[in-house]
Simulated assay, not measured.
Amino acid sequence: MDAPDIFDRALRARRRDRAAPAFAAHDFLYQMMLDELLDRLTDVQRDLPEVLVIGCPTDSARLRLEAMGKRVACVDPGFLNARGHGKGRRGVQADEDALPFADDSFDLILAVGTLDSVNDLPGALILMQRILRPDGLLLAGFVGAGSLPRLRAALIAGEGDRPGQHIHPQVDVRAAGDLLSRAGLTMPVADGETLTVRYGDILALMHDLRGMGAANMLASHPPALRREALAGAAMHFAQAAAPDGRIAEQMAIVYLSGWKPDPSQAGPARRGSATMSLAEALKPKK
């Protein structure tokens, strides 16, 4: 029996569609992840000409990759993002765990800001490994565990004894690295960084999350916050204000990279093939 969905797929698409027209006013997190992934790509010596971008709320990724001489296809869970943003270009609307591409289709997959809300993340990574060509590269960035601690605490405080689940489950760096290996990707790397963003009040933070298309999309459909609960949450959130009146919230970003196996890749040396013993290597130099 298939496990029930954590996220409402249709609601997820609607969230992204509603955010699309004004996304540029809330794109700082997306642009930060994109900058980091493209910076890591510059360290790669291989050409990787055929690219799939997963998560394309703007043309930024496509334009920057095309400027590098790459051919780019885009896929997004939202219809408006998939439809494209310029020059009549069109992408594909699809969830990451149901990508409609043939095996061995792309040299590079760049997944920017969407993998935190995929129902079947292990399946999505396995599917990405399949549609990569041998020695192809996956680079991904998404919001991970440890994000929004002040908002989470404020919502719990505002709702009292029976708080609803308003922030969805999050994946930590260690679990993400394990998933890369389980997906059959070689040389897996998972690491992260924390971004601190300062807000005047809880409503400004919620406005940013809606503007990113990252509002609640859980399939359990928790009830909306009552006015009294929101007022209590706002009061609790404000208690963390610095002397200038602003509250620091944190976003923990997880970055992933892994390669599709290929015989040309370096592997571990055959056991017993070393020319120096460990004891010899550890002797102090004269």
Results as ranks from 00 to 15, higher is better:
Met1Pro: 04
Ala3Asp: 14
Pro4Ile: 07
Asp5Thr: 07
Ile6Trp: 10
Ala10Gln: 11
Leu11Val: 09
Leu11Ile: 14
Arg12Asn: 15
Arg12Thr: 14
Ala19Cys: 08
Asp27Phe: 06
Met33Leu: 04
Glu36Gly: 12
Arg40Asp: 02
Leu41Pro: 00
Asp43Phe: 06
Val44His: 10
Leu48Pro: 06
Ile54Tyr: 10
Gly55Gln: 06
Cys56Arg: 06
Ser60Arg: 15
Ala61Arg: 05
Arg62Glu: 08
Glu66Pro: 08
Ala67Asn: 11
Met68Cys: 03
Gly69Ser: 03
Lys70Ile: 13
Lys70Phe: 08
Arg71Met: 01
Cys74Met: 15
Val75Asn: 03
Val75Thr: 10
Gly78Cys: 12
Ala82His: 09
Gly84His: 09
His85Thr: 10
Lys87Gln: 04
Lys87Asn: 03
Gly88Glu: 00
Gly88Val: 10
Gly91Gln: 05
Val92Ala: 12
Val92Asn: 02
Ala94Gln: 05
Glu96Met: 04
Ala98Gln: 14
Pro100Trp: 05
Phe101Ser: 10
Phe101Gly: 10
Asp103Ile: 07
Ser105Ile: 08
Leu110Phe: 05
Gly113His: 07
Leu115Met: 15
Leu115Pro: 08
Val118Phe: 05
Asn119Glu: 01
Leu125Ser: 00
Ile126Lys: 08
Met128Pro: 08
Met128Arg: 07
Gln129Glu: 05
Arg133Asn: 09
Arg133Ile: 14
Pro134Glu: 12
Pro134Asn: 09
Asp135Arg: 03
Leu139Thr: 04
Leu139Gln: 06
Ala140Met: 06
Gly141His: 02
Phe142Arg: 05
Phe142His: 05
Ser147Cys: 04
Leu148Lys: 11
Leu148Thr: 13
Leu148Glu: 07
Ala154Met: 09
Ile156Phe: 13
Ala157His: 12
Glu159Asn: 03
Asp161Cys: 07
Arg162Val: 06
His166Phe: 10
His168Asn: 09
Asp172Ala: 02
Arg174Gly: 01
Gly177Leu: 00
Leu179Arg: 06
Leu179Trp: 13
Leu180Arg: 00
Pro188Thr: 06
Glu193Leu: 13
Arg198Gln: 13
Arg198Val: 12
Arg198Asn: 05
Tyr199Pro: 02
Tyr199Glu: 04
Leu209Tyr: 09
Arg210Leu: 13
Gly211Trp: 08
Gly211Pro: 03
Ala214Leu: 07
Met217Thr: 15
His221Phe: 12
His221Val: 13
Pro222Asp: 02
Leu225Ile: 03
Arg227Trp: 00
Arg227Thr: 02
Ala229Lys: 15
Ala233Thr: 14
Met235Cys: 04
Met235Lys: 08
Phe237Tyr: 15
Ala238Ser: 04
Gln239Arg: 11
Ala242Pro: 03
Gly245Tyr: 11
Ala248Asp: 15
Met251Tyr: 12
Ile253Asp: 02
Val254Arg: 01
Val254Leu: 03
Val254Met: 02
Tyr255Ile: 06
Trp259Asn: 01
Gln265Val: 00
Ala266Ile: 03
Pro268Ser: 09
Ser273Thr: 13
Met276Tyr: 15
Ser277Arg: 14
Leu278Ala: 15
Ala279Asp: 12
Ala281Lys: 15
Leu282Lys: 09
